Amino acid sequence: MRLRRYRSPEDASATYAVFHAAVRISAAECYDPDQIDAWAGPDLDDLTAWDAKRASAFTLVGEDADGVAGFADLLPDGLIDMLFVHPRLGGRGAARHLLEAIIAEARQRGMGSLTTHASRRARPVFERLGFVLVEDRPNNTVRGVVVPNAEMRLLLEQSLGDAVADQRDR
């Protein structure tokens, strides 16, 4: 998978399609249908707001031979707001590849830490890259439906080995 910066507005439709497929198919292994419906939200006909959010963040897009295969957003405050991979690439390292590039960008920007609100589906990839649990969020609510996730943090000044050891100590 080749990584590149998000291109506005031409990537809006493809990244939205990846988000939708990842939530509807991949995340369905970890959440019930009502939770999936709330998380996915109504189908968007107008992607202007979606595009604006991707364009205002540091958004990386992953492409394979079939087109856009995943994307990740890094906000200026160190929040990884989005990390989604098309189900056709699930379990093949695509999320890890995107996340490693986001971490490298954050280090280059001199950020001290990164945070995320990881879904049950995404949590393992964050853990493998040294993110530690800050707080389980069993009552996280999306559109009036409880969709549990976990607040996680990575301290960038410590090595990956130290972060993994800290995680084991918890």
Rank of each mutant, 00 (worst) to 15 (best):
R128Y: 01
L83W: 06
L74F: 13
F84C: 04
M82N: 15
A94P: 07
G112F: 00
P87R: 14
R92W: 01
D73G: 03
V85W: 12
A106F: 09
A101G: 10
E105M: 03
L74K: 09
L79Q: 10
H117L: 08
D73H: 09
R92D: 00
H86A: 14
R109K: 07
L83H: 06
R109P: 03
G90V: 10
L98M: 11
L74E: 03
A69R: 10
A95L: 09
D73R: 12
E100L: 13
D66G: 03
L75M: 13
A95W: 00
V85C: 14
A118W: 12
G78P: 02
A122M: 12
R88G: 05
H97C: 10
M111D: 07
V125K: 06
R88I: 03
R123H: 06
V85F: 10
F126D: 08
H86N: 12
S113D: 05
V85T: 14
G91Y: 10
H117Q: 09
E100C: 14
Q108A: 13
M82K: 15
G90L: 14
R88S: 15
P124C: 07
E105V: 01
G112V: 05
H86V: 08
V85E: 05
L83I: 04
R92V: 01
E100M: 12
G93Y: 00
F84W: 05
